[in-house]
């Protein structure tokens, strides 16, 4: 069992989740609060990691962060080293890779809040920001939890992007899923099994959390909604 990899995986997943919630909340609110091709385009872009092989994302990020592109050269000049093959680079990749898992539950949740509640609050003089924090968000707590848990577990289970972008540097970019791959390559099946069990445990606990916490979106009439 590679405890360094475990620690790194947790650090990566927690940081990714924190960043994703900051990004996903306003993004999902914007997507949910209207229609049009601009929203469709953004939604499609957000959903891309769901259908693309992770290696494709990893490849493009690797190129973008490297000396072959303008932004990459700029980053190298600012940071003094390429973003790829570093924890920060991995973090950027994880945020993009797990973005749909954070955004989509929130979009579903926000879309489920009837327009009339927002209007009721605005009709009482509440500014849009206050409406969001005091009415919309508390009514979509279950979606927020789902979003955070999925972003976290999905990052823990990330493999292709990490492999392309991070290589295999202990303490910097070697996560549990990479460690597992290495152990299997070395024929160390006992250790591989322990690592795999840890990953299974993560997934199981996270999913239990989602299904155990009752849909806290209680409607006017009193019926609770299911987690989506």
């Amino acid at each position: 069992m590679d405890f360094e990899a475990l620690g790194l995986t947790l650090r990566l997943a927690l940081s990714t989740t924190a960043i994703l919630l900051l990004v996903a909340l306003p993004l999902a609110w914007w997507i949910a609060s209207g229609r049009g091709w601009a929203r469709a385009l953004v939604q499609a872009a957000v959903a891309m990691p769901l259908v693309l092989p992770p290696t494709v994302i990893g490849f493009y990020l690797l190129v973008a962060m490297g000396p072959l592109t303008g932004p990459g050269r700029f980053l190298i000049r600012v940071l003094g080293h390429p973003l790829a093959f570093s924890f920060t680079g991995l973090l950027v990749g994880s945020v993009i890779y797990s973005l749909p898992f954070a955004v989509q539950p929130l979009v579903a949740g926000f879309s489920g809040v009837e327009r009339e509640y927002v209007e009721a609050a605005a009709g009482l003089g509440a500014k849009p920001g206050r409406v969001f924090w005091s009415v919309v968000l508390p009514m979509t707590r279950a979606s927020l939890l789902t979003s955070a848990v999925l972003a976290f577990t999905h990052t823990v289970g990330e493999f292709g992007v990490v492999l392309m972008l991070g290589g295999n540097i202990p303490g910097a970019t070697r996560t549990l899923s990479i460690s597992l791959y290495d152990l299997v390559q070395d024929g160390n099946y006992a250790a591989a099994n322990r690592t795999a069990l840890v990953l299974v445990g993560f997934a199981m606990v996270a999913l239990m959390v989602i299904y155990l916490v009752p849909g806290s979106r209680v409607q006017d009439g009193g019926q609770a909604d299911v987690v989506r």
């Binding site: 009837e114 009339e116 509640y117 209007e119 009721a120 609050a121 605005a122 009709g123 009482l124 003089g125 509440a126 500014k127 849009p128 409406v131 005091s134 009415v135 508390p138 009514m139 209680v218 409607q219 006017d220």
Partner: peptide, 20 residues
């Protein structure tokens, strides 16, 4: 002028009490 910035307060036909 957006609703919240008007010198107007309103109640719709359906109650829409904030459930939480």
């Amino acid at each position: 002028v957006p609703a919240h910035a008007r010198p107007v307060r309103s109640a719709a036909q359906s109650a829409r009490l904030f459930p939480h």
